[in-house]
């Protein structure tokens, strides 16, 4: 009996020892700290049951920072994001945005555009020249000549799946992706487009290859022009600082 008790003691001592060895500290890195994000925002775009989770790696830091704040403060509505970010200060969100912006982005292959040549040409024209008669600016005006985004806040448009871009257009046409922001540039622009125009722009953008040269580019993307930054005050303040409420 006594021996049995001793064996039991020994066993429990071992068990305690084992769990103490295994309970090591988590690594002191940003990668470890953003683990909650990558359940959805992995290296690839993901379709979930309730929403589409885009890749966020390589997007401009200012753009990601703004979106994090919009989710946290209820201007962009998605409950899991809002609750996850509750109580996190701007400084920490800024660092998270910096981390994701610094990751090298892997792009999906282009999706060939199946459409009559006239439509392909119309899409190309809207993207590169806009439609001045209807006061629709060209995508390249803000998103950069290469359509790969401009610093500090405008995201790139290439390497995104067609359905993701279409979903964004849908959101903008129905009341805006970001609530309570005036002016909301993309909402205004999207509302001027017909449903077909929005669709073919999405298809055209998704069909463009992301040039290897751009991926290897060192240094930041080109800067958004001051004039456009002023016009689109929902994205940047006059001071060039990120938006506040």
């Amino acid at each position: 009996m006594k021996r049995l008790f001793l064996i039991f003691l020994l066993f429990s001592a071992l068990a305690v020892g084992a769990s103490e060895i295994l309970a090591a500290n988590a690594p002191d890195t940003m990668e470890e700290r953003v683990k909650p994000c990558i359940v959805c925002h992995g290296p690839e775009d993901k379709k979930g049951r309730d929403a589409y989770y885009p890749r966020i790696a390589g997007k401009p830091q200012g753009y990601l920072f703004n979106q994090l704040r919009n989710f946290r403060d209820g201007r962009r509505l998605y409950r899991p994001m809002a609750v996850l970010l509750e109580g996190l200060p701007d400084q920490y969100l800024w660092e998270m945005a910096m981390y994701f912006a610094s990751l090298k982005q892997a792009f999906p292959p282009p999706e060939p555009m199946k459409a009559p040549p006239a439509e392909i040409e119309l899409a190309r024209k809207l993207v590169t020249q806009g439609d001045p008669a209807r006061n629709i600016p060209a995508c390249v005006d803000c998103h950069g000549k290469a359509l790969m985004g401009t610093t500090p806040f405008i995201p790139g448009l290439l390497g995104l799946p067609r359905i993701y871009i279409m979903a964004q257009f849908g959101n903008w046409q129905h009341g805006g992706l970001i609530r309570g922001q005036t002016p909301d540039c993309m909402s205004e622009i999207a509302k001027k487009l017909t449903a077909n125009e929005a669709n073919i722009i999405a298809a055209w953008l998704a069909a463009q290859p992301v040039s290897e040269a751009l991926l290897k580019r060192e240094g930041p993307a080109p800067k958004l022009s001051d004039e456009l930054a002023r016009r689109c005050a929902s994205i940047v303040l006059h001071s060039g600082q990120p938006q506040s409420q």
Partner: peptide
């Protein structure tokens, strides 16, 4: 369901967190 980060404090300005699983 909703995960969340540990409280941000002076001594722990960059807490670790738990992902939300409501959507998964």
């Amino acid at each position: 369901l909703y995960g969340g980060y540990a409280p941000v404090t002076i001594n722990n300005p960059r807490p670790y967190g738990m992902p939300p699983f409501a959507q998964i």
